[in-house]
Design a binder for these strands. Structure first.
Lengths: 335, 335
DNA sequence: GTATGTTGCTCCATCGATTGTGCAAACTGT
DNA sequence: ACAGTTTGCACAATCGATGGAGCAACATAC
């Protein structure tokens, strides 16, 4: 245990008076299949521990064309959802005896492909992809090298994907918003959908869910109620201000389609008298723990990161059809 | 580019009509030193690109006893400071052409040592450690294998460490809190320090900083003003409630010594009339973007994650004395 | 006593890249 | 024209673990 020089199976073999291949098979657990006596195995394990030996993964990986490394690429670390995923991913990978490698690529396509290539150079055993800028390019790369991969939170045509059931989540969130609207609400009693990009899969499903619930309750959902203004908080803030001016006050309900939009709303509300904003019913399709400490109720959708990751791993163990798309229900956190 | 089978230097060599060693030295950039003609190098690079070749890092690593992998272990992903660090770490590592491996160990000593061992099995080139439960054990492990390592945000005796200047940060934060106190403050006009563990390095330095500034301004700092009740938000909430009852209202100023304490404060304030809490001057020794959206000003200390990481990398390039401890000034974000 | 089977290993080629060494061919100086 | 130098590359051992093949010792069968 005190040596600085790295131990190898040859050192252990010499110390145990046996051959390197015996040590090897003891260390990798195949010794029963290779008819090594249990006594021998125990003795070798003891020596290995005593001498502070640990397998050289590079050599093993070179030989077996595997590495025990498993990759996850995501846009950034500094985001609650992504760090939730990182957490679940780490736990699951370690539970399987693999080594998680998580890399943030800043939503930059070039960085994405470079990262995928780099990871492949390490012979990673599989790759999970979250929120990639160019999913199909990544899928192509993986496919061309035979690298098993699964997309999370973002469906990629032709590749197994695990995503949140956005439509169902949006319906439940919308319902919660409607139910929280106080009956004494005067003026414009409508609910507005704010933020997101209607061309993207997630947003479009959410809009469908929102519209369905609104129509069920109010009979109709005007086009003005859906303001898919993107993810930029500054633009969202402008839209909120416009809405406020147009309505002469806050609307009855607001569906914030991302954490950024929610932040914009908070920034706007800082200057609004408390008596006013305490009457707006707010829902956010994203989770932020600080939402619970606000002076008005906020319903939030939290993605089931644990489930998403688990299902993604299951896709590795039981490879599904290439176009398999699995949906996981979101968690609705009522205020 | 279309082949599923992995390319090797032998394939490229055959295609280029040259030897594997030539290809190797072209791929790893040593070709000038080995007097390879520039034409040859270019031709080989072209072929490599064309055939979709990428170096097998396992083979390279086996040969060179390096890996290009660089590790970071931290308690959890789901925390602003840690994810900030992950972000900076990733950028810096990639800039150096290394592959960042970030692993969360849940503040569990066993998980920590197992992770360090696992990472060493991959011959990682260096290891950064943040917020470990047992720093000296980790340092011992690394030392025994000759693995370069640097501690961040936590000094470890005998190992190079980069930490935030807690005393200076606490002084500046305290000063900001004092300056924000409105002159019309009636009743108990004192500032209170809440949370943390006085036995730990970081907290003790912060308490020193706090006390210094308080004494400079008020001449004295009573022992009741320092409530180092740990990091549990529930306990902190109890202490806040006690303080509130004892003073018959909110104090003039509050120094929240961690994000958990700050959350406890927010939870408490949800039930306090707005007129009351708008007069308390709050500082938090931690950063949380949502602090900016509150209806009262909060000064925050944000650790310079970028700097911490940069300095840590510099320690790798220019190994300092084993007990080197470098301090980085914190960033004070005024409300 | 010979044939056949089982036990418990060992031998050695191999994975792909690296690098010290060797060696022709081209060039330089005289 | 011949020794000496430089240029441009090829050879082959090596890193540490793996696993198919082989082999001696012993047991069992007939």
């Amino acid at each position: 245990m005190k040596q600085t020089a790295k131990r190898t199976i040859y050192d252990i073999a010499k110390a145990a008076g046996s051959s390197p291949s015996t040590v090897s098979s003891v260390m990798n657990g195949t010794w029963k299949g290779r008819r090594i006596k249990e006594d021998t195995a125990k003795r070798i394990l003891g020596l290995a521990d005593e001498l502070g030996y640990s397998v050289n993964q590079q050599a093993r990986g070179l030989r077996t064309a595997q590495s025990g490394l498993i990759g996850l690429i995501l846009p950034e670390h500094n985001n609650r959802f992504f760090s939730d995923l990182s957490q679940s991913f780490t736990l699951e990978a370690r539970k399987r005896g693999q080594c998680p490698v998580i890399i943030a690529t800043q939503r930059d396509p070039e960085s994405e492909t470079r990262t995928v290539r780099d990871l492949m150079a390490y012979s990673i055993d599989a790759l999970f992809v979250v929120g990639a800028a160019e999913p199909s390019e990544i899928s192509r790369l993986c496919r061309s090298s035979g690298l098993p991969h699964v997309f999370i939170d973002q469906p990629c045509p032709g590749a197994p994907s695990v995503i949140t059931d956005n439509e169902d989540g949006a319906r439940r969130l919308t319902r919660a918003i409607i139910e929280t609207i106080k009956p004494d609400q005067q003026g414009d009693a409508k609910v507005y959908f704010l933020g997101g990009d209607a061309r993207l899969h997630a947003s479009s499903r959410r809009i469908v869910g929102f519209r369905t619930e609104i129509e069920r309750h109010y009979g109709t959902c005007g086009p003005d109620q859906i303001i898919a203004c993107g993810y930029d908080p500054d633009i969202a803030l402008m839209r909120i201000r416009e809405l406020y001016d147009r309505l002469g006050g806050l609307p009855a309900g607001l569906f914030a389609n991302s954490i950024n939009v929610f932040e914009a709303l908070l920034r706007f509300l800082v200057d609004v008298p408390e008596t006013e904003f305490q009457h707006v019913s707010v829902g956010c399709f994203d989770y932020e723990p600080y939402g619970e400490f606000l002076r008005f109720p906020v319903h939030m959708i939290r993605q089931r990161h644990r489930q998403l990751v688990r299902k993604a791993f299951e896709f590795l163990d039981q490879p599904p059809a290439d176009n398999a798309l699995l949906m996981v229900a979101a968690e609705l956190r009522l205020a």
